[in-house]
Design a protein around this nucleic acid. Structure first.
Lengths: 109, 109
DNA sequence: GGTAGTGATACATTAATACATATAGAATAA
DNA sequence: TTATTCTATATGTATTAATGTATCACTACC
């Protein structure tokens, strides 16, 4: 699976958890089956752009194109640090995720 | 075709033209057939995420998720502002003043 | 025990991307 | 004119996203 896909999957999952939504709740908001949400978050899907936008918006996120040279500045604005205790108990057993929307890039120069 | 797709198409085309690249030149950079670039820019394709990322990177752009509440701030950076590192070192200590949010925009919804 | 909520997974089906290759039309330059 | 460049378009094929439905394991709580 492509790096960009896995990375996006992590970001979406982190954003969902930060909003304390279950996959089913998100699936209703976004109009996508829960089974598909699951597959997406596990990195098993190379999302179509329109689908990504739909899901992102259901999470109050917008998909944007940022010039590379402005990436650091953008990251400094969008960085957040969700606390473990912000999550509902039901989610705490879930694998811990990194900060939402961190644009940590490695792959590809 | 979906709005988000058309909008992305416009942004990609604008970015390509800004870099003064032909579709063919971009297709070689991104490893995608020129015919596909054409279709994309005409809004006839709902790109997969990995494809979008490839093409965007060939244009020195990164696909990012931005929380809606930070959109205005991000746009004000992205708009056309030169990055800090483009300035002579001697000016970098000067506090940056933020112009009012520019209203010109081709949205994102 | 039972119930409810969560996420992962399976399956069949439909629809669409992505690709290679080729070509046509418009504009420009030699 | 000819040649070149750029964009739009067409055809055919393989891959796969997306959907609908359903089930299973696990956890938490009554």
């Amino acid at each position: 699976m492509v790096y960009s896909t896995e990375n996006m999957a992590r970001e979406l999952k982190a954003a969902r958890l930060a909003k304390r939504l279950s996959q089913r709740a998100l699936s209703e908001r976004a109009g996508v089956p829960q089974s598909h949400i699951s597959k997406i978050e596990r990195g098993g899907v190379d999302l179509r752009h329109s689908s990504l936008v739909e899901i992102a918006r259901a999470l109050d996120l917008e998909v944007t194109l940022v010039p590379r040279k402005h990436l650091a500045a953008v990251r400094s604005i969008t960085r957040t640090r969700p606390s473990v205790m912000d999550e509902p108990a039901a989610f705490r057993h879930v694998e811990r995720v990194r900060p939402a929307y961190s644009l940590d890039d490695d792959d590809h120069g």
